[in-house]
Design a protein around this nucleic acid. Structure first.
Length: 420
RNA sequence: GUGGGUGUAGCUCAGCAGGUAGAGCACCGGGUUGUGGUCCCGGGUGUCGCGGGUUCAAGUCCCGUCACUCACCCCA
């Protein structure tokens, strides 16, 4: 209770056995990506601050008040990554991956950081799995990447994830919409902070959850009505492909996202069981991002799925998942001589692919057997002085309770047979 | 940054007219010095978040503070 140190605010320690679920979620999210030709990429956990300022956008809340930024001993201005796309785009440009075959398909998993007030499903340190497809603006690629996320959620056993879909237009049509929206919003009765947002980032106002704001905003123009022909064609194609893929979605004409780089296709995966934070994942197309951060023209589309929130969603749905048994054989030594022998035997078993553990710490037989039981092992191997003299071990099936004596030199093969 | 709720054992929580800190689960040991699960017995593992105040006496009442938590803002 009065521990000297605690995990910092907004962070948490992941401990066994629960931590297995996080590994499981990451694996299941990554599996469809790997099958679809996405390559694993790791980029630094921190980047130059300017990358995020220019990539994510100076007007976003993420950049203005949520970044973990600091100056290093060498006077470098760096920031713990608040999201993954900017870093991946930076790496793609730096290493000229787009000079090769397109699209460049990449996936990643890791930690991200935002200095926010924590609440259910929102942490200062959080975990995401992300995917990006760069260098091609084919609407079929938008559809592919969305469907890969849909598969990931389905493979995890989630049934209540909803896909919200919208198109935000591009550099041609969005400014027109933005002006119209601002004109509408300026006429409303809003608090000072929201008025400021109207000038800086008007699309975000549509996302305000406060009822008094929602009521006023309900008649606002929607971006869909302002799409230029190219954006409309692109969006129509995305929806057609998604339909072909059997993906279900909800049209969300007022869906906007908190990062400035999104263009055209924009989507969010939502779930009702998380409290106030309903988004379990999200993404979209970002055709201008590369140029924003000083790179060549390079369209892209991607998403990030929140690992922590996905776990919350699984709990909310009561999804059951089978944790792999941690132990097949549990060895119980009686005496020092037996312990020396079993330590080596357990090592042998492990090298041959058998999950094995040993009762450490001079526990009594009863306690050691209890530990064997708790380990989940199917077999217990009991060896004492009596057995050593006989050159044998007692092999007990912990499910049936049957016990047989096995010669020590046959023990590994016998165990391997019994476990198959 | 703003607002609400909660702080007692590892976990979930009880203790509320102010009077020697409790239960269940978990954990450890024993019953059975060579055998687990069920059963029985034993063991409390604690700065009652912290500081101050009222009182003969504070887990309990008052003030402050910190932490956690939920919600707004925002987002994964």
């Amino acid at each position: 209770m009065s521990a000297a140190f605690r995990a910092p605010k907004g962070t948490f320690d992941l401990l066994p056995p629960e931590s297995e679920l996080w590994l499981h979620v990451r694996e299941v999210m990554a599996a469809p990506l790997r099958r679809a030709g996405y390559g694993y990429v790791e980029t630094p956990v921190f980047e130059e601050t300017a990358l995020f300022e220019r990539g994510v956008g100076e007007s976003t809340d993420v950049v203005t008040k949520e970044m973990y930024s600091f100056v290093t001993r060498g006077d470098d201005h760096v920031t713990l990554r608040p999201e993954g796309t900017a870093g991946v785009v930076r790496a793609t440009v730096q290493h000229r991956l787009h000079a090769g075959q397109l699209p460049v398909k990449l996936w990643y998993a890791g930690s991200f950081f935002r200095y926010e007030r924590p609440q259910a499903g929102r942490y200062r340190h959080f975990s995401q799995v992300g995917a990006e497809a760069l260098g091609v603006d084919d609407p079929a690629l938008d559809a592919e990447i969305v469907s890969l996320a849909v598969h990931a959620y389905a493979d995890l056993g989630l049934r209540q994830v909803q896909l919200m879909l919208n198109s935000l237009g591009d550099a041609v049509c969005r400014p027109v919409y933005r002006e119209q929206l601002q004109a509408f919003l300026r006429a409303l009765d809003l608090d000072e902070e929201t008025r400021r947002r109207v000038e800086i980032n008007p699309l975000r106002v549509l996302d305000d959850k406060r009822p008094e704001v929602q009521a006023q905003v309900s008649g606002a123009p929607v971006v869909g009505e302002f799409l230029c022909d190219a954006c409309r064609d692109h969006y129509d194609a995305v929806r057609r492909h998604l339909g072909d893929l059997g993906v279900q979605w909800v049209e969300a004409p007022r869906l906007v996202r908190g990062l400035d780089y999104y263009t055209r296709t924009t989507f969010e995966f939502t779930h009702d069981g998380l409290g106030a934070q309903s988004a379990v994942g999200g993404g979209g197309r970002y055709d201008g991002l590369s140029e924003d951060v000083g790179g060549p023209p390079m369209p892209g589309v991607g998403w990030a799925l929140g690992v922590d929130r996905t776990v919350l969603a699984m709990r909310a749905e009561g999804v059951r998942w089978a944790a792999a048994s941690r132990c097949d054989v549990f060895a119980v030594p009686l005496g020092d001589e037996a312990k020396s022998r079993l330590l080596v035997l357990v090592d042998d078993l492990r090298r041959q692919g058998v999950a094995a553990d040993l009762a450490f710490g001079d526990r009594g037989l009863k306690g050691a057997m209890k530990a064997a039981d708790r380990s989940g092992a199917r077999l217990a191997l009991v060896v004492g002085d009596r057995d050593l003299e006989a050159g044998a071990a007692q092999l007990k099936d912990l499910v049936t309770g049957d016990q047989v004596q096995v010669p020590l030199d046959a023990i590994v093969t016998t165990i391997k047979e019994r476990l198959t």
